[in-house]
């Protein structure tokens, strides 16, 4: 860990301030992302994955969301302290994003050539012909066939997978050091998903950018990521290299999550085999317990789990978990 990480998040808190109370959707998230690395951020719906991503871009949803505490260090500088105008310079060039739904990610009234041009022209001024050439190259880079013809087409003339690639081409046109991919394959067909993941992986290898990959699909994590961070009720409960998380998960929540992924071996559900589930519900983010947030659903719960939050325990060189029961290295 001698090299400085491209992105380091320290103790990030983003809360919703509503009339009914404060929703602590992101409540003390810390992780770091190294150059050329893919970090998976997994967790169930509503655990704060997407809000973490939006906090990093400083594009919080309207309606009372605010980052109240923490640091987001991009190449060592805290971007939470930048002005909105400085943030606009940072977005797209140093940190960029791909969203879930390709159907609404492109503006329906502009040709994709125009949309690519908008992104390229923001980065540099150049004669029209040169910008066009660059747009064609950007499309070629995301493996779109006959890019010259595609430039004049509109989003509705393309398939979902193709649109998502164009979105990707726009996102990386500013050559960002960090790409946040918020469930980019959820809306795609399974066969297209695989292609898209391979493409992302290749682009990452070519450009050396780091990817924060948000998903709830462990299969995708295994294919894409170098390390995984598991999020539960606004906090990262376990973080480590993919192999270790899959083979020896330490936190009871991670174990339960991995157990609930259907396997290709053994009897399928409905024919003797039953898929493991996690009983109960995550705690209300408006009224979080003092102790461990998973205590209410944990099979190993003890008194001390209810009394105090365990804190982050280092298990291996790169493996940490927030649990009283794990054995420190």
């Amino acid at each position: 860990m001698s090299e400085q990480p491209v992105l380091e998040v320290r103790d990030l808190h983003t809360h919703f301030f509503l009339r009914r109370g404060v929703v602590k959707a992101v409540d003390g998230v810390s992780f770091s992302l190294r150059r050329g690395e893919v970090l998976g951020l997994v967790g169930e719906s509503g655990c704060g994955k997407s809000l973490t991503a939006l906090s990093l871009m400083r594009l919080l949803p309207r309606g009372g969301a605010r980052t109240v505490k923490g640091e987001v260090l991009l190449d060592g500088e805290n971007i939470l302290e930048r002005t909105p105008a400085e943030m606009r310079e940072i977005r797209g060039r140093r940190i960029s994003m791909v969203l879930q739904d390709p159907q609404t990610s492109l503006n329906p009234v502009f040709s994709i050539g125009d949309q690519l041009r908008e992104a390229i022209q923001r980065r540099k001024r150049a004669p029209h012909a040169e910008i066009i050439k660059e747009a064609v190259a950007a499309l070629r880079r995301v493996e779109i066939a006959a890019p010259e013809q595609r430039l004049d087409q509109y989003p509705h003339q393309m398939s979902g997978g193709m649109k998502q690639r164009v979105v990707g081409a726009i996102a990386i046109s500013g050559e960002p050091g960090v790409l946040i991919a918020d469930e980019p394959t959820t809306a795609l067909d399974v066969t297209i998903q695989l292609q898209y993941l391979k493409l992302l992986k290749r682009l990452q290898a070519e450009t050396g950018m780091a990817i924060l990959f948000i998903t709830h699909d462990f299969g995708v994590v295994g294919r894409m990521c170098d390390r995984v961070a598991v999020m539960y009720a606004g906090r990262i409960v376990e973080c480590g290299p993919v192999r270790q998380i899959f083979e020896a998960p330490q936190h009871p929540y991670t174990r339960a999550l991995i157990a609930s992924v259907p396997k290709m071996t053994g009897p399928p559900p409905g024919m003797g085999g039953r898929l493991a589930t996690i009983e109960g519900q995550p705690p209300s983010l408006m009224d979080l317990p003092v102790g461990c947030r998973f205590a209410g659903r944990c099979p190993l719960v003890e008194q001390r789990c209810l009394d105090a939050y365990p804190g982050t325990v280092r298990i291996g060189p790169e493996h940490t978990a927030d649990c009283w029961k794990v054995v420190p290295a």
């Binding site: 994003m97 969203l99 609404t104 990610s105 908008e118 996102a171």
Partner: peptide, 14 residues
């Protein structure tokens, strides 16, 4: 609410 507006902001549009 559409994503292309969010992505325009991601790109740094004012």
């Amino acid at each position: 609410q559409r994503d292309f507006v969010a992505l325009a902001r991601v790109r740094g549009c004012s």
